[in-house]
C-alpha cells in the first residue's frame, strides 16, 4: 500500500519562500479593504446617526451589496480594473467590509446613553470633542465586534480571487486541485484560518486596550 500522505512536509519546506510571498499578498489584499472600509464607514455611520432618514436606504443598499456573490463581482469588475490585479479583488471586499461596519458604527453610536451625552454637553465639551472623547470610545466595543466579523470574512474571501488570477493563498487551492495534490490545499486552509485567528485576537487585544474601563468593572 503506497498511499499518498495527506501532508508532505518536504514539499512545504521546499516551497516555503513561495508560500511566504502568497501569504504577504493575502495579508495586503485582506487588510487594505478592512482599513479603507472602516475609514469610509465611520463618516457614513456618523452621517446616518446625524440624519436618521439616511440610515434605512444606506443599510438597504449595503444589504444588497453584501448579498452579491464575490466571484460574480470580481468578474464584473475585470473590464474596469483588469484580470489578476489586486484592485479587482480589493474593491468588492471593501464594500463587504462597509456593509458590516456601517451598521456597527451606527449601533455603537446610538447605544451611547443619553445621560452620558448630556453630561458631556454640560461639562462644556464642543460637539467634535464630545464625539472624539466620549461617544466614539463608548462605541468602540460594538464597532470592534463588527470589525472582527469584517476582518475574518475578508481574509477568507480573498482566496476566491484565485479564480480570477489573484487570490493570495487561494492560489494553493488551484495548484492542489490541478495536480490532485493535497498538501498545498491543506497548507492554504490552515494558513487562512490561522491568519483569521491572529487578526481576531489582535482585535480583541485592541478592544482591551481601547476600553480599559470594561476590565476595571469586571466581566459584565
Amino acid at each position: 500500500m503506497h498511499e499518498e500522505p495527506l501532508v508532505r512536509w518536504d514539499w512545504i519546506g521546499r516551497n516555503w519562500p513561495n508560500i511566504q510571498v502568497l501569504l504577504e499578498d493575502h495579508v495586503v489584499m485582506s487588510l487594505v479593504p478592512i482599513v479603507v472600509g472602516l475609514l469610509v464607514a465611520l463618516p457614513l455611520g456618523l452621517a446616518c446617526v446625524r440624519w436618521r432618514w439616511l440610515y434605512q436606504p444606506t443599510v438597504g443598499v449595503m444589504n444588497v451589496v453584501y448579498s452579491l456573490p464575490s466571484l460574480a463581482v470580481f468578474i464584473v469588475l475585470i473590464p474596469v480594473t483588469g484580470l489578476a490585479t489586486r484592485t479587482t479583488v480589493m474593491i468588492p471586499l471593501t464594500f463587504y467590509a462597509m456593509a458590516v461596519l456601517i451598521p456597527a458604527v451606527v449601533d455603537g453610536l446610538t447605544a451611547v446613553p443619553d445621560h452620558v451625552r448630556q453630561s458631556a454637553v454640560a461639562m462644556g465639551f464642543t460637539p467634535l470633542r464630545r464625539l472624539l472623547r466620549v461617544e466614539l470610545p463608548i462605541a468602540v466595543p460594538v464597532v470592534l465586534a463588527g470589525l472582527r466579523v469584517a476582518a475574518v470574512s475578508s481574509i477568507s474571501l480573498v482566496s476566491v480571487g484565485a479564480l480570477v488570477g489573484r487570490g493570495g493563498l487561494g492560489y494553493l487551492f488551484i495548484d492542489g486541485w490541478q495536480r490532485q495534490f493535497y498538501t498545498p490545499i491543506i497548507v492554504g486552509i490552515v494558513l487562512v484560518v490561522l491568519l483569521a485567528a491572529v487578526a481576531d485576537m489582535l482585535l480583541v487585544l485592541a478592544q482591551r486596550l481601547l476600553t480599559p474601563w470594561s476590565r476595571a468593572r469586571g466581566s459584565a
Binding site: 481574509i155 479564480l163 487551492f173 487562512v192 484560518v193
Partner: peptide, 13 residues
C-alpha cells in the same frame, strides 16, 4: 469557524 474557512479550499479538498 465557518466564517474563517475559505470556501474554495474546502471545496477542492
Amino acid at each position: 469557524a465557518a466564517r474563517a474557512l475559505p470556501t474554495l479550499g474546502l471545496l477542492v479538498l
